[in-house]
Amino acid sequence: MSELMDAYWAQPPIARTLTTAVLVTSVSVHLLGWLPAAWLYYDTAFLFRFPPEIWRLFTSFLVSDPQLGIIMDSYFVFQYLKQVETANPKFATKEDVVWYLMTVGSFIIFINRVILGAGAFFLPALIMALTYTACQDQRGAQAGFFFFTVPAQTIPYCMILMSFLMRPWIIPMQLSGIVAAHLHDFLWRLWPEFGGGPRVLATPSFVSYLVQTPRNVSRGYGTAVRPSGSGAGTGRTTGASTGSVLPDSWKTRGAGHRLGGD
């Protein structure tokens, strides 16, 4: 049991936390009946009640499909959010990933409620957004999709094809996830780098305060070092920390002199 818990806590924190929230919430709704779905779905009218039911902005992304969907949706959330959190070069810090989830989630709600005029639970759209973001920077690589090997960037469309065969009513929401992820990529990277425009989706400072990513983050493959400035997006990974490498006991010895010098 301790080995299982050690493996659990060794996983990336954002992917671990969100997957756990999806799994626990879905089991509580579909299997145990502890949480009524009516308390969790999104409806704008509930945000303007007193007190406002703000939690619906978050819980509407935590309820999976019933039965096998509980396992599959939780797996997809973990699989692709882990890739976004640990292997995507766009996101140098944890706060960048948190801000990505917040902005993409907002786009998904807007597209579904304002443009499409439907939607109460948005987890399928979020899964598709995570899949799109994780796979777009793997162009040219091969990836496994169930029993098949396909180009990595085609996995989102393979998922849509699977939905067409099994649950076609969910496809519009999945497409909204692709649109939301593409819009985030355009505003975060493409427009500033290739269009010369401002980075309108730069991670705000309040997210950095909430997440409080430490400057030195130990990893299994080295130490991720963040710059000392705020809102840094230029961290690098190295096998040793930068800056002073002397032990603390040496730092009290005063100014050093070269051998043979004055």
Rank of each mutant, 00 (worst) to 15 (best):
S2C: 10
E3R: 15
D6I: 11
Y8I: 07
P12N: 02
A15K: 01
L18C: 09
L18N: 05
T20M: 05
T20K: 03
T20A: 12
V22Y: 00
L23F: 12
V27P: 15
V27F: 08
P36I: 08
A38S: 14
L47A: 06
I54V: 15
W55N: 05
S64G: 09
D65C: 08
D73C: 06
F76V: 14
Y80I: 07
V84C: 06
A92R: 02
K94D: 12
E95F: 01
W99H: 09
Y100F: 10
L101D: 09
I111S: 09
N112R: 07
R113L: 06
V114W: 11
L116T: 07
A120E: 08
L123D: 04
P124E: 00
I127H: 02
T131I: 10
Q138I: 00
F145D: 04
F147N: 11
M159P: 13
I160S: 06
S163E: 10
P168A: 02
W169D: 15
W169F: 13
W169T: 14
I171A: 09
L175C: 15
L183R: 03
F186I: 07
F186W: 07
W191F: 06
E193N: 00
G197M: 01
G197V: 01
A202G: 06
T203G: 07
P204A: 03
F206N: 07
L210M: 10
Q212W: 06
V225L: 03
R226F: 00
V245Y: 13
L246M: 12
S249K: 12
T252W: 13
G256T: 11
